[in-house]
Computed example of a mutant assay.
Amino acid sequence: MEAKQKINIIANIVGLMASLGGMAMTIILLYFNPYSHGDVSSGTVKIAYATLFAPAVFALIPLLFKKHRLMFISFLWSLPISIYLGGTPGIFKLFGVICILYLISALLFSFKTARLK
């Protein structure tokens, strides 16, 4: 297997892990939050879906349709709230890791296309 294929596989795995992790963490944040015992307001649900779940779903598009530059959009879309949640104590720091994984996947795709043509 050549280097270009290996980088592509790694970039796809990292992107898929970030996407599935982002969706799972959003569900945990909203419905199984270990730090909250009350109901989540509808506004919070809308914001979480728009800023965390939607970029995770959008990250599947570059993986499925080979439009790898779109992974940068998922990174930038989730960056502000990921920075905020990355600074909180507890398991929701993982949103910062997920955002970084979007970036790593996007950079691997870019590296593959730029360096290994």
Rank of each mutant, 00 (worst) to 15 (best):
S41V: 15
S82N: 02
G87R: 06
L63Q: 07
S78A: 09
S82A: 10
K46W: 15
P62G: 03
R69N: 09
L52S: 07
S74Q: 02
T44V: 14
T88N: 01
L76E: 03
I83G: 07
I83D: 00
L85S: 06
F58K: 01
R69W: 13
K46S: 14
L64A: 09
S82K: 02
L79C: 01
P89L: 02
I73C: 02
I61S: 03
L79I: 05
L64F: 07
P89R: 03
L63N: 05
T44L: 13
I47T: 12
G87F: 15
F75D: 00
T88I: 09
Y84K: 02
T51F: 14
L70T: 08
S74W: 04
I61H: 02
V45N: 04
L60C: 00
P55M: 06
L76S: 11
V57R: 03
L79K: 01
V57D: 04
S41C: 14
P62S: 01
V40G: 08
S78K: 04
F75R: 00
L85E: 05
P62H: 11
L60I: 08
Y49D: 04
I83T: 09
L52Y: 11
I81M: 10
Y49G: 12
F72C: 08
F75E: 00
L63E: 00
I47K: 07
W77I: 03
F72H: 04
Y49K: 14
A48P: 10
A54C: 05
T88W: 01
L52C: 12
T44M: 14
L60G: 00
S78M: 11
G86W: 06
I47Q: 04
A56M: 07
D39S: 15
S41E: 08
L76P: 02
T51I: 11
L76C: 10
A59N: 09
I83N: 11
K46A: 14
Y84I: 10
P62D: 01
P89V: 13
L64S: 05
P62V: 09
L52P: 07
L64W: 04
S78P: 01
A59V: 08
R69C: 05
P80S: 06
H68M: 02
S41K: 15
I73R: 04
V45E: 06
L63A: 06
T51N: 07
A56N: 02
P62L: 05
S42D: 10
G43H: 15
P80A: 10
A50H: 12
S78G: 05
P80C: 04
L79A: 08
L85F: 13
A56G: 13
Y49Q: 09
L70A: 09
A54L: 13
W77R: 00
L76W: 13
L70Q: 08
D39W: 14
P55T: 08
M71S: 09
I47V: 11
F58Q: 00
P80Y: 08
I81R: 07
F75W: 12
I73S: 04
K66V: 11
L79R: 00
I47A: 12
P89W: 09
I47F: 14
L64Q: 03
I61A: 03
P89G: 03
D39C: 12
L64E: 00
L60M: 09
K66N: 11
L85I: 08
I73F: 13
Y49F: 15
A59R: 04
S74Y: 06
S42R: 15
P55L: 07
T88Y: 06
K46T: 15
L52V: 13
S42T: 15
